[in-house]
Simulated scan of single mutants.
Amino acid sequence: MKWYVTLLAGGSLALSSCMMAREARVESDYSYAGQFRRYRTYEFISGDGINSDTSRLGSTVRDAIRNRLKIQGYRTARRRPDLLVNFRLFEGDMRFRGYAQEDFSRWVKAGYSEDEETPNEDRKGYQPVRLLLQEGTLLVTLIDNRTNRAVWNGYASGVSVPTGPQGEIVLRRSVRSIFDQYHIFTEGYLSGQNTTSETDE
């Protein structure tokens, strides 16, 4: 799926110097093949950079994501999670390909999803939009573990991360702003039907 490759390919990113303070720009993209109503569990991807960073900044981002997903009814699962969570912090300017799409919440509420059997004439199609994300970007990607394809991408640009405790505050606020774009609760959670605590399933 080109969308997944493009969003995560490091070669498509043009990075420059250090981050500077400015108001964050927050946006998101999603895959029409995402099964958002069935996702209930998640786990973080291990890897290089801040995603595997055991420093306070890396831990701050993971904790902020974990807390937000818990509020929305998601549970961690070490085995066979529905979603894999990846995040990365880029310094400087970044050229990025986004997509012009209808409101994500409306799309999920409509219950429509594309798969391999969806006729070509019924597919929505992706309309690329070239973006210049300035002076530092925090990128969060949700990946469908079953298909190994990215289904949602949220990003905040213009993120200045100073040293010390203030940097942790900035990252927590950035995560909160990003997940305001992913306003999806797990099915049955708000009505009390999905209240199981963290699981290792």
Rank of each mutant, 00 (worst) to 15 (best):
Q35G: 07
L190G: 03
L15Y: 01
T137H: 00
R25W: 03
S105R: 14
Q101R: 03
L190D: 08
T195Q: 14
I184D: 04
V26K: 04
R75I: 07
Y112D: 05
Y155T: 00
W3S: 03
A110H: 10
G158H: 01
R176G: 04
A21D: 15
T118D: 06
S52F: 01
S177T: 02
R106V: 06
H183S: 13
A156G: 08
M1W: 02
S12A: 04
G11P: 00
W152N: 03
F44M: 04
E23S: 13
R97I: 14
G188A: 06
Y155W: 10
E116T: 12
G158L: 05
G111E: 09
S177Y: 03
F90M: 09
G98P: 00
G158S: 05
T147W: 01
N153Q: 10
N86M: 10
F185S: 11
S157E: 01
L69W: 05
H183A: 15
G192V: 12
T76H: 08
G47Y: 05
L131T: 00
L138V: 06
R176N: 14
K109N: 13
K70Y: 09
Y4G: 14
D200Q: 10
S12F: 14
E27P: 00
P165Q: 10
L171M: 15
L83H: 08
L138E: 04
T54A: 11
N51S: 12
G158C: 04
E168H: 05
A100E: 07
S12G: 15
N120F: 06
H183V: 02
G125W: 03
M19P: 15
Y182N: 03
E187M: 11
L7A: 12
I50R: 02
E135T: 11
P162V: 13
S59Y: 01
L84I: 09
P128Y: 02
S55D: 15
G98L: 00
V140W: 06
F185C: 14
L138G: 07
A110E: 15
E187I: 04
A100P: 00
V108S: 09
H183F: 07
L138C: 05
D63V: 07
R40D: 05
A64M: 12
M94Q: 11
Y42K: 06
V5T: 11
R40I: 05
G10N: 14
A14V: 13
R56Y: 03
Y189R: 10
I71D: 12
E27I: 06
V129D: 02
F104K: 05
V159P: 07
L57Q: 10
Q72W: 08
R25T: 14
S160C: 15
K124H: 11
K70N: 07
A150M: 15
D103P: 01
E121V: 10
G136V: 08
T141C: 11
W107C: 08
E168C: 13
I65Y: 02
Y74A: 08
N67P: 00
S31Y: 05
G167W: 03
R123L: 09
T141M: 04
G164Q: 13
M20N: 11
Q101V: 00
R22V: 07
R37L: 14
R62N: 07
V5M: 10
I71M: 09
G73F: 03
W107L: 11
A110I: 04
A100S: 09
